[in-house]
C-alpha cells in the first residue's frame, strides 16, 4: 500500500470527515471536508504510529494536514529524515 492509500485509510478512521474520503482528490481541503482541529490531532497521532515517525513542533500546524497531498509531503520528509 502506497503512502497516499495509507493516509486515506487513517483519514477514514480518524478524520471524522463529512464526506467519503474516496471521493476527495489528493488536493481537496480536508478542513472544508469537515475535519475538525481535534480530529486532525487524532490523524497526526495515527500517522506517527503508522509511519513510525515523530512530528516535530514546527510541523504541528494546520497547513501540514490541510490535504492528502500536504500530509503525504510531510510524511515523506519525516520518513526521509529518519531513513
Amino acid at each position: 500500500m502506497g503512502n497516499e492509500s495509507k493516509i486515506r485509510a487513517i483519514l477514514k478512521e480518524h478524520g471524522r470527515l463529512a464526506k467519503d474520503v474516496d471521493t476527495l482528490d489528493d488536493n481537496a481541503d480536508l478542513y472544508q471536508a469537515g475535519m475538525t482541529s481535534h480530529a486532525s490531532v487524532n490523524v497526526m497521532l495515527a500517522l506517527e504510529g503508522e509511519f513510525d515517525v515523530e512530528f516535530p513542533d514546527e510541523m504541528l500546524k494546520r497547513s501540514s494536514f490541510e490535504s492528502i497531498a500536504a500530509i503525504a509531503s510531510v510524511v515523506d520528509s519525516l520518513t526521509a529524515a529518519s531513513a
Binding site: S37, L45, F55, K61, R62
Partner: peptide, 14 residues
C-alpha cells in the same frame, strides 16, 4: 500534550 500544540497553533493561526 503534543496534540495540544497543534490545537494551539491552529487557534493562533485563525
Amino acid at each position: 500534550g503534543k496534540g495540544g500544540k497543534m490545537l494551539a497553533a491552529s487557534q493562533r493561526q485563525q
